[in-house]
């Protein structure tokens, strides 16, 4: 499939939502005092784990206290 034939207008919302999720997760990671496990590891998971990464961070990584 070549570059032009990809329906960017349809896919764009997904990309934007993913970016928002990643940015929010990173902001949260910077603000919280401590996480379950090392912080740098969570940064890697959030950035590289595209769709699931931020979700896993919010559920598991965040220490809700």
């Amino acid at each position: 499939m070549d570059f032009e034939s990809i329906p960017w207008l349809l896919i764009l919302p997904i990309i934007i939502i993913q970016l928002i999720l990643i940015v929010v997760a990173i902001i949260d990671l910077i603000r919280v005092r401590s996480t379950n496990g090392p912080k740098w590891l969570w940064a890697v998971i959030i950035i590289l784990g595209n769709m699931i990464g931020p979700i896993i961070y919010f559920i598991v990584g965040r220490r809700n206290e």
């Binding site: 919302p13 997904i14 939502i17 993913q18 928002i20 999720l21 997760a25 769709m51 979700i55």
Partner: peptide, 18 residues
């Protein structure tokens, strides 16, 4: 403050579109 108001609806939106 813990962003739940933002990320939980976004997750549902993401799966709804994808």
């Amino acid at each position: 403050r813990n962003f739940k108001i933002l990320w939980i609806p976004l997750v549902f939106l993401l799966f709804g579109i994808s």
